[in-house]
Amino acid sequence: MFKGLGGIGDMAKMMKAAQEMQEKMARLQEDLARTVVIGESGAGLVKARCTAKGEVTGLDIDPSILVPSEKEVIEDLIIAAIKDAQGKAASRGQQEMAKLTEGLGLPPDFKLPF
Rank of each mutant, 00 (worst) to 15 (best):
1 M>H: 11
1 M>I: 09
2 F>R: 14
2 F>V: 10
3 K>S: 13
4 G>M: 05
4 G>D: 13
4 G>H: 09
5 L>G: 01
5 L>Y: 08
5 L>I: 11
6 G>I: 00
7 G>R: 07
7 G>H: 03
7 G>W: 04
7 G>V: 09
7 G>A: 09
8 I>C: 06
9 G>I: 07
12 A>W: 08
12 A>M: 15
12 A>I: 14
12 A>P: 02
13 K>W: 04
15 M>H: 05
15 M>R: 13
16 K>T: 08
17 A>L: 12
18 A>I: 02
18 A>H: 12
18 A>E: 14
18 A>M: 14
18 A>N: 12
19 Q>G: 13
19 Q>H: 12
19 Q>S: 15
19 Q>F: 02
23 E>P: 03
23 E>C: 03
24 K>V: 07
24 K>H: 13
25 M>C: 02
26 A>H: 02
29 Q>Y: 02
30 E>Q: 13
30 E>A: 15
31 D>L: 09
33 A>L: 10
34 R>V: 01
34 R>F: 00
34 R>L: 10
34 R>P: 04
37 V>Q: 05
38 I>C: 06
39 G>M: 07
39 G>Y: 03
39 G>V: 08
40 E>M: 06
40 E>K: 11
41 S>E: 04
41 S>L: 08
41 S>K: 01
41 S>T: 07
43 A>G: 04
45 L>K: 14
45 L>D: 09
46 V>M: 06
46 V>S: 00
46 V>C: 01
46 V>G: 04
48 A>W: 02
48 A>S: 07
50 C>D: 02
51 T>K: 10
51 T>W: 06
51 T>G: 09
52 A>Y: 00
54 G>Y: 04
54 G>Q: 08
55 E>H: 12
56 V>K: 06
56 V>S: 10
57 T>Q: 13
57 T>H: 07
57 T>V: 14
58 G>P: 08
59 L>V: 09
60 D>K: 13
61 I>Q: 01
61 I>L: 08
63 P>F: 11
64 S>A: 15
65 I>C: 10
68 P>V: 09
69 S>K: 15
69 S>Y: 05
71 K>P: 05
71 K>G: 03
73 V>R: 12
73 V>A: 07
74 I>C: 12
75 E>I: 03
75 E>M: 00
75 E>V: 04
78 I>F: 07
78 I>R: 08
78 I>W: 08
79 I>M: 15
79 I>P: 00
80 A>Q: 02
80 A>H: 02
82 I>P: 00
83 K>W: 00
83 K>M: 06
83 K>Q: 14
83 K>D: 10
84 D>W: 10
85 A>N: 01
85 A>L: 04
86 Q>W: 01
87 G>A: 13
87 G>D: 11
88 K>D: 05
88 K>I: 04
88 K>M: 12
88 K>P: 06
89 A>D: 03
90 A>L: 15
90 A>P: 08
90 A>N: 14
91 S>A: 12
91 S>D: 13
92 R>K: 15
92 R>A: 14
93 G>W: 01
96 E>P: 03
98 A>M: 11
98 A>H: 11
99 K>P: 04
99 K>L: 13
101 T>N: 08
102 E>Q: 15
103 G>A: 09
103 G>V: 09
104 L>V: 12
105 G>L: 06
106 L>R: 09
106 L>V: 11
107 P>K: 10
108 P>G: 04
109 D>E: 12
109 D>C: 00
110 F>D: 11
112 L>D: 03
112 L>Q: 06
112 L>N: 02
112 L>A: 07
113 P>L: 00
